[in-house]
């Protein structure tokens, strides 16, 4: 791992500062803490097993998400120290490389009974529970913004996006949710 340390002055403020959570009976939209995001880059023809990656996560359900053949994200709400990150990246070797994306990607949680209908306005992925069960994850476009979508519950999704697009995606999601926020 590089000795370069991403320290507080480089990421002084949360990307979604000022984005207060939007809550109604039908929908709930909230920014998640900027903890850790580790992108795991393996070989597509000999993918790592999920059992190999799960011990490297903080143990939460859906902490390890598939992101295309041979690639995963390991995410969590708690920021990792430089030493902890170094241990994880070393443990992935030699089958895969890890990249610390903690300062590069932001997570948004969307939940509620209308969440599938809200997200369907932005993405063409079939989000029906039978086709996209809990734990399923994929990369797709939400509007014009590339985002990584994970189902974390029957009525709950996490949307992960590059930091520079976080505010735009939040605005889009808020607008997509607007009709469900009126009650």
């Amino acid at each position: 791992m590089s000795d370069l340390r991403i320290t507080r002055p480089l990421t002084p403020q949360p990307a979604l500062r000022g984005c207060t959570r939007l809550v109604s009976r039908a929908i709930r939209l909230e920014a998640l803490p900027e903890g850790h995001v580790i992108q795991v880059l393996g070989t597509p023809h000999a993918p790592l097993a999920m059992e190999r990656l799960a011990p490297l996560s903080d143990g939460a359900p859906q902490a390890v998400r598939a992101a295309g053949p041979g690639q995963w994200f390991i995410v969590g709400d708690r920021a990792k120290t430089h030493a902890e990150l170094g241990d994880i990246l070393a443990a992935l070797q030699p089958e895969a490389f890890g990249v610390d994306q903690s300062a590069g990607r932001v997570r948004i949680r969307a939940s509620g009974p209308m969440v599938e209908r809200m997200l369907a306005k932005g993405t063409a992925v079939d989000l029906a529970l039978t086709r996209f069960p809990v734990g399923e994850a994929t990369t797709t476009l939400v509007g014009h913004i590339a985002a990584h979508v994970t189902r974390i519950g029957d009525e709950a999704f996490e949307i992960m996006v590059l930091r520079g697009f976080a505010q735009s995606l939040w605005d889009d999601l808020a607008r997509m949710s607007a009709e469900f926020l009126e009650d």
């Binding site: 053949p69 063409a124 079939d126």
Partner: peptide, 9 residues
Amino acid sequence: HCGARPKEE
């Protein structure tokens, strides 16, 4: 790998 997706992707 991903199923049916729109051409914009």
